[in-house]
Nucleic acid binder design. Structure first.
Length: 747
RNA sequence: GGGCGGCUAGCUCAGUCAGGUUAGAGCGUCACAUUGACAUUGUGAAGGUCACAGGUUCAAUUCCUGUGUCGCCCACCA
């Protein structure tokens, strides 16, 4: 430092630390440690220390548990900022405030990540290691990610109660998962069924409908007949599946084909004998293609549904590896794409192909592995969303105890009756639409990392026994189901599994239902809907009163951040360069509920300047008020009174905005007020009064400055916790922490 | 195919889901000033037919209808 000491020093009364420009990196870690050690993140300690009354209203929220697949991105940072603002606000308002952290094992995402690494580094797959050894690897990876994530959450300043931290795959959550599964099984809401499911040949597991991503591809659609004498031509994009056809469906009113309905034909299709029945089904669109559909019950969900309606046979011709599984040597063992070519050339040879056209079609791929979904018939576990059962709870408006309901009905009801409010409102429509089109949820996965299905099988002479329970029953040879549960099954329990359920705990009684769920709109189906499903059924109550959906953080041009575009921004870098406070502010300003956030570095830099402004203004006020005597009588001028009135107005507005989740507005107003009213005008005007004014005038000016500073620091604290806490600690007479100061009230 | 959202200053967005004087902010740009809280500064300026077209109204960026455009979600017309 090259500070020369020759100048008269107006700064002699301020603490050393305030002299240099604000340096977030030097401050933040120590401040976070102070908070953590104070215990104020934990509501029990707040009550113990008199910060919150024992009977104060509660504010509770779970942290959407980040996946233990790596590090946090800007979207997480935005989420943490919003949630921490709400938490700090309510804590300062004296509520019993709980923000409960944790992480998600993210079954398939984590496993496939570890598998990829294993393949890349050691050229091994999970079977080379075996279940136990492989799981050890996954656990080590998950632990590592977890530690990183915890560190990042702290760096953002999140005031989560670490003493209650949970993990979706820990022992306590395992109990909740088993309890939920067993109850649902006993009520007939979970069943095992042989159905066509979404099979991911790459990940070698089933996945749910929601884990499918549609991708547009060019494809050929072929119009042909099974044989020369077959009366009806059909069209398909997947000729290779046609060796599994057992019917041709036409519309009941289609005059062209009505004469054939009910007839049966035997043909040999590319060497494979087929027995085809002509059926009439209203699901067939007579306008499309030839108006006739080849029905392949084993390899198409719609066709499977037709099979159920018309009692057709089902022949599986493709196996789990996406290879043909039929006797004909031309096809057997071939990949589906190769088999397709074989069949097309066979059709040409036989002169059966009538037309070939190019179309764009949507192809189903697996979200995590990118594998192309192969619909296959498999014996799997499902949650039945349409099954009727008597409602066991008491806390859902409009539904009486014992009333016959379905899971769909419960999910609809709590949003419709206003018990749970989805924000922004438009997403309630999306939510309802999703429920209306919801099919049974396939919850079993053929992967190793996750909650093992609590079901036991035993082979017997006349088939087998099944037992649903946490432990194997008495007797020999019981084998647990090798499959694990969809990761969202355990996250669906998150609002209450984290509070000790199924035990009757104080935490559960006090903090459930939670006040608000803040999460990204991209997981409204995966998670929000599943939580509502699980909670309404298992608890007979809502999981949360409000759902605050935030958008996606994009780059400054509105593009999605992605590694391939090279426009990603690591929150850790942003924090290092500009500080956590600036990073938080940049993610809040301009981010209305449900809107995507365009974030450029400029925006963060601007907020760092703001932090510096706060720092310097505070330093100035402290200097000027060093000789302020609070015991002296204050005579305010008219403009002083107006300034205080304006401050009161600000307090009221900020309070109102946060209460209504308009954080972006509150942040902008604070920014504007502090900089352009307080610093630019009020402080400027005070300068002359303090240097040249009468003692009374000087005193009044000092009173105004310190009052405004004190109040604005409180208002700013939820948004910029580190710098405000730091300044607070440097102000004379402050021995307590700003984090638990009382939120200001307008007069 | 169904549904949803955006379109306001060069860029990113506000405009508080109850229409009304010169439509706001940040960043950027330009000019000037200042080293006595802060050059991470101050003052000032330029810059907008509020996508377009109809309609309702005394009055529309704001309400209604339609069009265009960009984007998103859902959906196995084989």
């Amino acid at each position: 430092m090259s500070t020369d000491n020759t100048k008269p020093s107006p700064t002699r009364n301020i603490p050393e630390e305030l002299l240099s420009p604000y340096d977030p990196t030097a401050t933040e870690e120590a401040i976070y440690t102070t908070w953590k050690e104070s215990g104020f993140f934990n509501p029990d300690i707040c009550i113990e220390k008199g910060i919150a009354e024992p009977d104060a209203p509660t504010f509770s929220m779970v942290l959407p548990p980040p996946n233990v697949t790596g590090v946090l991105h800007m979207g997480h940072a935005a989420m943490l900022a919003v949630e921490d603002i709400l938490t700090r606000f309510e804590r300062m308002r004296g509520k019993r405030t709980l923000w409960l952290p944790g992480s998600d094992h993210a079954a398939i995402a984590t496993q496939s990540k570890v598998e990829k690494e294993l393949q890349k580094k050691e050229k091994k797959n999970r079977h080379d290691l075996g279940r136990e050894a492989f799981l050890e690897r996954v656990h080590a990876f998950a632990q590592d990610s977890h530690d990183n994530i915890v560190d990042q959450i702290a760096k953002m300043g999140a005031s989560v109660d670490w003493s209650r931290e949970a993990f979706t795959l820990d022992e306590a959550r395992g109990k909740a998962v088993n309890e939920a599964f067993i109850r649902m099984y006993n009520d007939g809401l979970i069943y095992r069924g042989y159905r066509v499911v979404n099979w991911d040949p790459k990940g070698q597991t089933t996945i749910s409908d929601d884990e499918i991503v549609h991708e547009e591809r060019q494809a050929s659609v072929y119009t042909f007949r099974y044989g020369k004498d077959f009366p009806i031509p059909i069209a398909t994009t997947r000729p290779e599946t046609k060796v599994g056809d057992t019917a041709v469906a036409v519309h009941p009113d289609d005059a062209r084909y009505s004469a054939f309905v009910g007839k049966e034909y035997d043909v040999t299709f590319c060497g494979v004998p087929l027995h085809i029945r002509i059926i009439a089904d209203k699901d067939v669109d007579p306008e499309y293609g030839t108006g006739a559909v080849g029905v392949t019950p084993a390899h198409s969900m719609v066709d499977f549904a037709m099979k159920e309606r018309h009692d057709l046979p089902m022949i599986q011709v493709i196996n789990e590896y996406g290879k043909m599984d039929v006797g004909e040597p031309r096809l057997k063992g071939k990949k589906t794409t190769d088999a397709r070519e074989e069949i097309v050339s066979w059709l040409k040879e036989e002169n059966l192909l009538e037309k070939e056209e190019e179309i764009t079609q949507n192809i189903s791929t697996a979200e995590r592995t990118g594998g192309i979904i192969e619909p296959l018939p498999k014996l799997q576990w499902f949650v039945n969303v349409n099954k009727e059962f008597p409602f066991q709870g008491h806390n859902i408006k409009g539904i009486a105890h014992g009333e016959i309901v379905t899971l769909k009905k419960l999910m609809h009801e709590v949003v419709e009756n206003g018990q749970t409010t989805i924000m922004p409102e438009r997403f309630a429509k999306t939510y309802n639409h999703w429920i209306d089109n919801l099919n049974d949820w396939c919850i079993s996965r053929q992967i190793w990392y996750g909650h093992r299905i609590p079901v036991w099988y035993k082979k017997t002479e006349d088939g087998g026994d099944i037992h649903v329970g946490t432990e194997a029953p008495e007797g020999e040879n019981w084998q647990q189901d090798p499959d694990t549960l969809d990761t969202w099954f355990s996250s669906g329990l998150w609002t209450f599994s984290t509070l000790g359920w199924p035990e009757e705990t104080d935490d559960f009684n006090i903090y459930h239902p939670t006040t608000i769920l803040e999460t990204g709109y991209d997981i409204i189906f995966f998670w929000v809907a599943r939580m509502i499903l699980m909670t309404t059924y298992l608890i007979g109550d809502i999981p949360f009163k409000y759902v605050y959906l935030h958008g996606i953080v994009r780059d400054s041009q509105g593009r999605k951040m992605s590694k391939s575009l090279g426009n990603t921004m690591d929150p850790r870098d942003a924090i290092t360069l500009y500080g956590a406070d600036a990073t938080r502010m940049s993610l809040i300003i301009g981010a209305a509920v449900g809107n995507d956030i365009n974030l450029g570095e400029d925006k963060i830099r601007a907020q760092k300047k703001f932090a510096n402004k706060i720092w310097n203004a505070s330093r100035f006020v402290m200097t000027q008020c060093a000789d302020f005597d609070a015991s002296q009588e204050t005579i305010l001028t008219k403009s002083d009174t107006e300034n205080l009135k304006e401050l009161d107005g600000l307090v009221a507005e900020i309070t109102n905005d946060i209460e209504h989740f308009r954080l972006y507005l509150a942040a902008e107003k604070l920014y504007h007020y502090f900089w352009h009213r307080f610093a630019d005008v009020i402080i400027e005007e005070s300068k002359a009064r303090i240097t040249d004014g009468t003692p009374e005038d000087k005193h009044a000016a000092q009173y105004i400055l310190s009052t405004i500073l004190t109040t604005t620091l409180k208002l700013l604290h939820p948004f910029m916790p580190f710098i405000t806490e730091k300044i607070w600690s440097l102000m004379p007479g402050h021995t307590t922490l700003l984090i638990v100061e009382k939120w200001p009230k307008g007069t």
